[in-house]
C-alpha cells in the first residue's frame, strides 16, 4: 500500500525569507501525523504546499502514489480546516456541511447529500443544530461544523491548520480528544499542524518537529519526548519546559555551576555538554548541593517548583503532597538514566 503522502526535499522561499528547506515527510495510510513548531516555523507554508495553494520552489509531493505538483487544489482531493472557522454565517449548519458536496462535477443526488450530512452531523454531535444559522453557534460548535465540512466529502487526506487555537482552553482540551477519536474511526490520514505541544504529544501517532523551515526530528511522541535529538527539540516538546544546563566534564562526572550532577556515561560528548533534565525527572532530595526554593506553583495534580541551584534557575515537577515551601532549602538530584547530554556545539 502506498503512503498517503510522501514529501521529498521540499523547499520554498518568499523573497528573502527561506520558509522551508529540504523537508522530507511521510504519512502512512491510517496515520495522524502532527507537525509541531513555533510561530514562523514554516508549518502553514508546508500545509499550503500540500493543499496546492502554494507552489514549492523545489522538491516533490506525492499523494497516494501520484505526483501532486502541478495539480490544482481541487484535483488533490484534500480537505483543509483553518484556525478561523470560515463558515458562511447566514447558512444553517446543514447547508454549511453540505456545501462541498454541491461543488460542480460532484453530481450527488439530494438524498445522498442529506444522508451524508446526517452522518457527518452524527459523528460530530451536531444533529440537533442542523437547522441553526452558523452565526448563532458557539466557537466550539463552529469549529465542529468546519470539521464536518471537511469530513463530509470523505477526502483522501485531512489537513488541519491549528484548528483549536482560537477556542477556550477548556474546550480545546475536550475537542482534541474528540478529534483524535473521530479520525481513528474515519481511518483517513491526517496532517495536523499546531504550536501546542500537548496536542502534538497526545494526538499524534507520530510527531514531526519543525523549526526554521527544517524538520528537526520525527518519530512517535514518546520517542521524541524521551530521546530528543537536540536541545532545540527538547525545548519545543514538553511543558513545563526542560531544564538545560551547560555542564563540564570534571573527571568522571558532569558538573554544572560547580555542582556534580550526574556521572559520565558511555557515548557522552567530551569536555563540555548541554545537560537536559525534564522537570519531572528532578527529585528534591538525595543530591549533594543545596538549592533554594524560589516559587511553588500549584498545577492541580502536581506542583511546579522553581529552584535556584548553584547559580542556575531550574524547575522541578513534583507530586502535590510534597511538603515544599518558598524559601526552603532542598538538595535536588537527577536520575542519570533520565538526563540528556548533547555536545555543546549543537
Amino acid at each position: 500500500m502506498s503512503a498517503a503522502l510522501a514529501i521529498r526535499g521540499l523547499t520554498k522561499r518568499f523573497g528573502a525569507v527561506q520558509a522551508l528547506t529540504g523537508v522530507d515527510l511521510d504519512l502512512a495510510a491510517d496515520e495522524l501525523l502532527v507537525l509541531l513548531g513555533p510561530t514562523g516555523a514554516g508549518k502553514t507554508t508546508l500545509l499550503r504546499c500540500i493543499a496546492g495553494l502554494e507552489a514549492p520552489d523545489a522538491g516533490s509531493i506525492t499523494l497516494g502514489g501520484v505526483d501532486a505538483v502541478g495539480l490544482s487544489p481541487a484535483q488533490r482531493d484534500v480537505a483543509l480546516v483553518f484556525q478561523n472557522f470560515s463558515l458562511y454565517p447566514d447558512w444553517t449548519v446543514g447547508e454549511n456541511i453540505a456545501f462541498p458536496l454541491r461543488a460542480p462535477g460532484r453530481a450527488m443526488g439530494a438524498d445522498a447529500i442529506r444522508e451524508r450530512v446526517a452522518w457527518a452531523a452524527r459523528m460530530l454531535r451536531l444533529t440537533d443544530y442542523l437547522d441553526r444559522p452558523a452565526s448563532r453557534l458557539s466557537g466550539g460548535q463552529m469549529q465542529r461544523v468546519a470539521i464536518g465540512r471537511a469530513i463530509v466529502r470523505r477526502p483522501r487526506l485531512f489537513l488541519m491548520d491549528e484548528p483549536l487555537t482560537n477556542l477556550d482552553a477548556k474546550l480545546r482540551e475536550s475537542l482534541r480528544v474528540e478529534l483524535a477519536v473521530l479520525r481513528r474511526e474515519l481511518k483517513t490520514p491526517m496532517l495536523y499542524v499546531t504550536h501546542d505541544q500537548a496536542e502534538a504529544l497526545s494526538m499524534g501517532d507520530r510527531v514531526a518537529v519543525l523549526d526554521g523551515g527544517r524538520i528537526l526530528q520525527q518519530g512517535e511522541p514518546r520517542a521524541v519526548y524521551e530521546r530528543p535529538v537536540s536541545p532545540a527539540v527538547a525545548r519545543l516538546v514538553g511543558l513545563p519546559r526542560i531544564n538545560l544546563l551547560p555542564a563540564e566534564d570534571a573527571g568522571g562526572g558532569w558538573t554544572a555551576g560547580g555542582v556534580a550532577i550526574v556521572p559520565r556515561a558511555a557515548g557522552d560528548p567530551a569536555g563540555r555538554c548541554l545537560l537536559g533534565i525534564r522537570p519531572e525527572d528532578l527529585r528534591l532530595a538525595g543530591g549533594s548541593a543545596p538549592a533554594e526554593v524560589q516559587l511553588v506553583e500549584h498545577l492541580g495534580a502536581a506542583l511546579l517548583v522553581t529552584l535556584r541551584w548553584a547559580g542556575m534557575q531550574v524547575q522541578a515537577l513534583v507530586g502535590k503532597d510534597a511538603a515544599v515551601r518558598r524559601g526552603d532549602t532542598v538538595h535536588p538530584a537527577a536520575d542519570p538514566g533520565r538526563t540528556h547530554r548533547w555536545s555543546a556545539a549543537d
Binding site: V177, A180, V181, Q197, A198, L201, S202, M203, P221, R222, Y225, V237, G238, L239, R278, P279, E280, A301, A302, L317
Partner: peptide
C-alpha cells in the same frame, strides 16, 4: 479505553 493521551510527564486515559 477510548483514548490514551500521552503527555510526556504523564498520560490521561479516557
Amino acid at each position: 479505553v477510548v483514548m490514551d493521551e500521552y503527555l510526556g510527564a504523564w498520560r490521561n486515559l479516557h
